[in-house]
């Protein structure tokens, strides 16, 4: 997994609450059996005016010129700001794959849905929770070309002279900073799992079919 340590990036706005993962990446693109190839379809029904299918390129599509991510001032943005409960709904990790491939390495919102939040940490995309009034102030200034500096080591977002702390679970932070493979880390505890499993089988033998 890609590590996340520090990021200086341009901010793009998505001024909506309860953005669900069906909007982040619609269902017709979930038929792929790959982890890549989703960036072109990020926020598909909002970025484009026509209905897309897997395999189409943005050049073949009708661009929605009014949608924030299509505006010239936000091209190349690496940080997305959004409202409450970002990433709700379906567990599809394709949503995070699409955001990352499109170029976003961090999302800032007042709150996130649980499954999306966890999926971000599996892919080196940092979800940052900041108070709603701070996020609102970022929305007010984003059109002027806002860049932010995010440092995971100190868990701070720096906006010019202003700096905001964000909370992050220490264990998740550690994993993100090192970009370590989750499965390797868990398999290092294989003996612990086997010991548990032996006891579990004794306590609830009906759970084992072999």
């Amino acid at each position: 997994m890609d590590a996340f340590v520090q990021l200086d990036g341009l901010v793009a706005p998505l001024d909506r609450a309860n953005v669900d993962t069906d909007q982040i990446i619609p269902k017709q693109y979930l038929k792929s059996i790959k982890r890549t190839g989703f960036g072109d379809y990020l926020f598909d029904a909002w970025r484009f005016l026509d209905q897309g299918t897997l395999g189409m390129t943005p050049n073949e599509r009708q661009i929605n010129r009014e949608f924030s991510l299509n505006l010239p001032e936000y091209q190349g943005a690496a940080i997305l700001i959004a409202r409450d409960n970002f990433g709700c709904g379906s567990s599809r990790e394709h949503a995070v794959w699409a955001l990352k491939e499109f170029g976003f390495r961090a999302v800032i919102a007042p709150s996130f849905a649980d499954i999306f939040f966890g999926n971000c940490f599996k892919n080196g995309v940092l979800p940052i929770t900041l108070p709603a009034d701070v996020v609102s102030s970022l929305f007010e200034r984003v059109a002027a070309g806002l860049t932010l500096s995010i440092d995971l080591r100190t868990h701070t977002v720096t906006d010019g002279d202003q700096s905001y702390d964000f909370e992050i679970d220490p264990a998740l932070k550690e994993k993100m900073l090192n970009g370590m493979d989750d499965i390797d880390l868990t398999l290092a505890e294989a003996d612990l799992i086997r010991d548990f499993e032996t006891g579990h089988r004794q306590r609830q033998p009906w759970l084992f079919r072999d």
Partner: peptide, 18 residues
């Protein structure tokens, strides 16, 4: 009943039956 323990990085492991 499913708490396996913690990994070295402090993250908890929950055993999955199905």
């Amino acid at each position: 009943a499913h708490d396996v323990g913690q990994r070295v990085d402090g993250n908890s492991l929950l055993y999955i039956d199905l």
